[in-house]
Write a protein that binds this DNA or RNA. Structure first.
Lengths: 99, 99
DNA sequence: AATGTTTTGGACAGAAGTGTCAAATTTAAT
DNA sequence: ATTAAATTTGACACTTCTGTCCAAAACATT
């Protein structure tokens, strides 16, 4: 079962490669405290963090973004009934926009 | 049939059945001004509006929600590169959660 | 146990979001 | 052309969000 929380995802990886919050936060140009909160899900991650996170944690950017989006959507739209259909529709629109 | 702005969608319908903002707003228990802004996309719709909107505008709730979600997602995540994949992943998670 | 390092907690400030009110504008009807 | 109704605009208050600062707590090392 997936449903990986974004915070858990980056914390796990950060510990894996043994970087302190301090280092990662500095790289993202934010306070240690902020990153700590993001990792524990106390605050949401800003999209601005994604690219630098993927770099310093040596993660695929696409995977980072995917995890971020999935997590945020389930938070933002969790309560809605016809979410699945809404997402499919959104996908369509995005694809058609791309061209 | 895609990329419908939520505001346009409900305004079109409201005019179709010839209800003034005043009536609809009253039914939603919000100010006329607020609804006007929502219709013109100046402000986002609150999820609380969806149900009553579907009722007074005689629209399928599912369609209303779908349009709302699609619009909101393109606003919220418009800039992200791997959005399509993220949405697919989110869908998976939601489906698995449902059971 | 003492020191140093990492992590967390909470108060705070500034920004952004949400809706209201009242006045101004636009549109429709007489 | 007046009047009335509908709609839009902008200022305002209130709340929520976002990140910082710095002190406290937890953890590790010697």
């Amino acid at each position: 079962m997936s449903n990986v929380k974004f915070g858990d995802y980056i914390r796990k990886r950060r510990e894996e490669i043994e970087l302190p919050l301090r280092k990662v936060a500095a790289y993202l140009d934010i306070d240690t405290s902020t990153l700590s909160k993001v990792e524990r899900g106390e605050r949401p991650a800003s999209p601005d963090y994604l690219k630098p996170l993927s770099e310093i944690l040596e993660l695929d950017l696409k995977e980072v973004q995917t995890t971020y989006i999935a997590d945020k959507i389930s938070k933002d739209f969790g309560g809605l009934e016809h979410l699945s259909e809404g997402l499919k529709e959104a996908e369509k629109q995005i694809k058609s926009k791309k061209r």
